[in-house]
């Protein structure tokens, strides 16, 4: 997983899978990387081929963390169709801004 800071933007990419094995680490690393200046968090899911409920839980935890910080936007970028299906199945696509670029 790669985390890059670009001004007010925090970009998280190269996530191959998001499961019970790495979801805590994923959540903690992003939380640590967030600063008071962070306005946008973009999670690039274009390389994420597998996600389970722990991964969904990590995304939800991140969502909760961002709504506590008013004005912070959380975006999911380019999810593969299977992950998009999972987000729709769990109705979590309603929580996130899902963007295709």
């Amino acid at each position: 997983m790669k985390i890059e800071r670009d001004g007010e933007r925090l970009c998280v990419s190269e996530i191959n899978e998001l499961t019970a094995a790495n979801s805590s680490n994923f959540r903690d690393e992003i939380n640590s990387a967030m600063t008071g200046a962070t306005v946008v968090i973009e999670i690039d899911l274009s390389k994420t081929l597998f996600m389970d409920s722990s991964g969904l839980g990590a995304l939800f935890a991140l969502y909760r963390a961002t709504i506590k910080r008013e004005g912070v936007v959380l975006r999911l970028l380019n999810p593969v169709p299977e992950i998009e299906q999972l987000l729709e199945l769990t109705q979590m696509q309603q929580l996130f801004e899902v963007v295709r670029r």
């Binding site: 996600m51 389970d52 169709p81 299977e82 299906q85 999972l86 729709e88 199945l89 769990t90």
Partner: peptide
């Protein structure tokens, strides 16, 4: 859960618009 525009059988979920197949873990 929300199953929309899909064929769902067992743990397999197929979006019939795109043909995308998800094996729900």
């Amino acid at each position: 859960t929300s199953v929309a525009n899909s064929v769902a059988w067992g743990s397999t979920l197929i979006d019939w618009r795109t043909g995308s197949v998800l094996h729900v873990p």
